[in-house]
Structure formats: C-alpha cells, structure tokens
C-alpha cells in the first residue's frame, strides 16, 4: 500500500513537472493568442466634398469613380464648383464600448 502511495507520489511529481514544462513551452503562444483577440473594426470609405470659393464642406460615403479633385456638383451656398477634397478610410470599432 505504502509502495503504491510512494509510486503515486513519484508519478504525480513527474506529471506536475511535465505539465509545468508544457505550460512553459506554450506560454508565449498563449500570451500572443490572448493579446491578438482584438475587437472587430468596421472600415468605411469617406470622401470630403468642399466648395472651391467658400468654406462649405460636407462628408459622405465614397462613390465608385470619384477621385480627389473631381467636380461633383455646385455649392448650395454660393453656386461655385464642389470638388472632392479628400478620400480616406475611417475605422470604427463594432459593437458597444466596454464599461
């Protein structure tokens, strides 16, 4: 009985040693896996449209075929040309912010 107990202790010690070794080997992977779980991000292409004469500016969703410098209409304020002044990607985190 005592022999069995001693044998169990030895096996237990070996199992613990093996588990610790495995944990040490997997630790970098576990850390990287935990840190890479980032929140989903939604990307949207936005274009800034502005008047060439006054300070009128508005932003809207990018339309296919638009480029910076393209005339896209007339200014609602003074009737001058409206051009695309910028196109960029806006990133927004999806879902509710954490508390």
């Amino acid at each position: 009985m005592m022999l069995l107990q001693q044998f169990d202790t030895l096996i237990m010690a070996l199992i613990i040693a093996f588990a610790l070794l495995l944990l040490t080997a997997l630790l970098p992977w576990l850390i990287s896996a935990a840190s890479s779980r980032s929140r989903a991000v939604r990307e949207e292409l936005v274009e800034v449209v502005g008047c060439l004469r006054c300070d009128y500016e508005s932003s809207k969703k990018h339309e296919k075929g638009d480029y910076v410098g393209k005339v896209v209409g007339t200014c609602p304020k003074d009737g001058a040309f409206l051009v695309v002044k910028a196109i960029y990607v806006e990133r927004r985190a999806q879902g509710r912010a954490g508390y």
């Binding site: 292409l45 936005v46 910028a86 196109i87 960029y88 990607v89 806006e90 990133r91």
Partner: peptide, 12 residues
C-alpha cells in the same frame, strides 16, 4: 500601400 487612413490624412 493601403488606402489612406483618417490618421494619415490628418497628417497630410
């Protein structure tokens, strides 16, 4: 090489 982000546009 990627479509310009808002952050870089602000830099522009």
């Amino acid at each position: 090489l990627s479509p310009i982000s808002k952050k870089i546009y602000e830099g522009v």
